[in-house]
Design a protein around this nucleic acid. Structure first.
Length: 484
RNA sequence: GGCCCCGUCGUCUAGCGGCCUAGGACGCUGCCCUCUCAAGGCAGUAGCGCCGGUUCAAAUCCGGUCGGGGCUACCA
């Protein structure tokens, strides 16, 4: 049977990095096996689901390049792939279960259930509701006729237990004393996650369910429902959760968890995928952590996924992103960063500005860890230099060498005929020689004078791009500020 | 509290009874290169949670213990 997998986020929040990793693993598994990858919207929680979240999930999935074969937006043989469009189907299954005895109407109140749990805790026994409050057939008829609202609960067979072979965890067994008679249909006739998700997995022919470990203990419920539908139970694989740097479950407390935030911060989708893939999967075939999507697809197997929870470490992501930025085609780098620069500047780059940027871009590309840090680094080349970094100024401009270097540089640069990096290089080094200045001592004041900071793209190239007039004006400006 | 999952350098991992005086990557430190910062090169730092057991031999198997995580909703 061909592989059919799905990523089924619920639009009750933005797509977060953990969800993206689940999506990626499903994607890799499907692509490596000639399977079908489905994107489904598990939006049974109508109160918390929003269109904004629905759209975010779609946007981020597309940005990451995790194309799906069937699903929301795209469609397919199973309709809209939105659970909110299939409530009748779930209700039909639930009522069928009532008729077949797999489920029953329940009128148990919250306080009754709380009571049950409280007693269980005191007795040290399982807190899972065991169905002891199930009404008789007569009571059901009477209460329903009375207009009482009821939920439909699945009747978990007890005694009993469910065992399944998890692809990443191995055999897992849950005794049914630990599984409650769970609600499958709410009193407003809407389905719960357990019902809708399982019915969809059955109806859509899902063969492998790969999802977060947070649902591991709900899996017996899903298996029980599947069996009650006389369907084939899919293979399950539960991924460990992502943690923050402090070893606690990754949350907003740790900074960004939303995929969109990383996109805005200037991370490349290729880097994100590579990093996420390695977060819980030993991809290395040759000890190289940089793995192309094609290789990931070729090598990936759920059986090789790590069982331990992984810490989302932005340090390694930063490094990896730098690797991918450097690997970009120079023209593509310019194309993707120009809009960011224009956004920062507040206007479209003119021809001259664009030319200047193109000249310096390769040097910036070499140094960037994220796309977002590019624009600030070229500010001094495209706009006025209206302020100096104070720490930089104090560090190099207050030395006795600074005024000497600045004056000498102004003279040397004024005489250059061919305003090119090479000539500038030669002229400035001759100046250093003449005044007995080290490159470090003599050039840093010039760097601060023209860029405002001790950190900048290469000096000679920057000077060339800046042009003679601007360069000399800035040197003069810095010189007078020293005196001032 | 009950049940389930997990436990190799700070972090991600390799390891699946002898090849391990535990390998790689990120980070960190030092050196080299160098006009700053990066990049690059080289070197270094640091780990099998603990206690028992099985075995000629354990990071690898078993038990316990400790620690972390998850679930325990008419959320997903």
């Amino acid at each position: 049977m061909s592989v059919r997998v799905r990523f089924a986020p619920s639009p009750t929040g933005y797509l977060h990095v953990g969800g993206a990793r689940s999506a990626l693993y499903n994607f890799l598994f499907a692509r490596g096996r000639d399977g079908v990858f489905i994107l489904r919207s598990d939006d049974t929680d109508t109160a918390r689901s929003t269109d904004e979240y629905r759209q975010d999930i779609i946007d981020q999935m597309q940005w990451l390049g995790l194309d799906w074969d069937e699903g929301i937006v795209k469609g397919g043989p199973h309709g809209t792939y939105r659970q909110s469009d299939r409530f009748e189907r779930y209700a039909e299954v639930a009522h069928g279960f009532v008729r077949s005895g797999h489920a029953y109407y329940s009128f148990a109140t919250a306080s009754q259930l709380d009571d049950f749990k409280k007693r269980a805790r005191e007795a040290g026994t399982s807190p899972a509701y065991d169905g002891s409050l199930e009404p008789t057939q007569d009571q059901v008829s009477r209460l329903l006729a009375d207009g009482q609202t009821a939920v439909v609960r699945f009747r978990v067979p007890r005694p009993g237990s469910t065992t399944f072979h998890d692809l990443v965890r191995g055999d897992v067994t849950f005794d049914h004393t630990q599984v409650d008679d769970f609600v499958i249909l709410r009193s407003d006739n809407s389905p719960t996650y357990h019902l809708a998700s399982t019915v969809d997995d059955v109806d859509y022919g899902i063969t492998h369910v790969t999802r977060g470990e947070d649902i591991l203990s709900s899996t017996p419920k899903h298996i029980l429902i599947t069996e009650a539908m006389s369907a084939t139970v899919p293979v399950y694989a539960h991924l460990s959760l992502l943690m923050g740097p402090d070893g606690k479950k990754l949350s907003k407390r740790h900074g960004h968890t939303a995929m969109a935030a990383y996109r805005e911060a200037g991370y490349l989708p290729e880097a994100m995928n590579n990093y996420l893939a390695l977060l819980g999967w030993g991809a290395s075939e040759d000890d190289d952590d940089i793995v192309s999507m094609d290789d990931m697809i070729r090598r990936f197997d759920l059986a090789d996924v790590s069982r331990n929870a992984a810490v989302f470490d932005t340090k390694k992501l930063d490094w990896m992103n730098g690797v991918y930025i450097r690997a970009m085609d120079p023209e593509a780098f310019v194309a993707t960063t120009v809009p960011l620069i224009e956004h920062r500047l507040g206007h479209t780059l003119g021809e001259g500005e664009l030319d200047r940027y193109k000249q310096i871009a390769p040097h910036v590309q070499e140094r960037a860890k994220t796309l977002a840090e590019v624009a600030p680094q070229v500010d001094f080349l495209l706009g006025d230099l209206d302020e100096y970094d104070e720490a930089s100024w104090e560090k190099v401009m207050l030395t006795p060498e600074a005024p000497i270097a600045l004056d000498a540089a102004a003279g040397a640069l004024a005489d250059i005929e061919d305003w090119k990096t090479d000539a500038i290089d030669v002229a400035l080094r001759a100046m250093l020689e003449e005044h007995g200045l080290s490159a470090r001592k003599g050039l840093q004041p010039i760097r601060v004078a023209i860029s405002g900071s001790t950190v900048s793209p290469p000096l000679f190239e920057s000077i060339e791009v800046l042009g003679r007039d601007t360069t000399l004006a800035r040197i003069a400006g810095a010189r007078s500020r020293i005196d001032g």
